[in-house]
Design a protein around this nucleic acid. Sequence first.
DNA 1: CCCTGATTCGC
DNA 2: GCGAATCAGG
Length: 198
Amino acid sequence: MSWTDERVELLKKMWGEGQSASQIAKELGGVTRNAVIGKVHRLGLSNRAGTGTTAAAAAKPEPKAKPAAPKVEAKPKAEAKPKAEAKPKPQEEPEPETRVAVMPPRAKIIPAGQPLPPQPSANEISPEALAKVSEIEKKAKRLSLMELTERTCKWPVGDPATDDFWFCGLPVQAGKPYCEAHVGVAFQPMSSRRDRRR
DNA sequence: CCCTGATTCGC
DNA sequence: GCGAATCAGG
């Protein structure tokens, strides 16, 4: 397969949308994610706004290899811009807090004598997410605490005080503590806080 | 172990 | 220019 205009265009589009290289490769077909990444670099559109990976490591090559490269590398580079240099960037805050963290079902610890706090956000989880969870819990591996590993979902199910307690144990993804379904419950997009008459 | 992107270098 | 191999991080 070669990089036709169409394919490059799709690559640019998807990359711009934040799709991963592997996803793009899958979509394009006939290429590996390495090919996609290589192309992305050649196109010069590498760094997307911080894709959480090796930005730092990228900046420090040459642990070995490449012996001689006596580049004179003089860089006068008198880049004088006549006007309009200042980039209007008052918007510095990258965290529009589109998500609301909801605590996992832990044992209720309520201060004695206190009325129940209104629990502003710990309720009203989207029906889809809940359905997904009930569905997923059928497939759950029901691991015990000691069976949990780095890549098993640590979502607790049941009452810790009884035998009927276990952890989901399904595969987690990319450093998250929970499986896909439980991540969906733990991190609610604020948009899902739709008004639901109670 | 799964994933991510980055870099190198023979082709 | 291409991309597999490798690296580095989550």
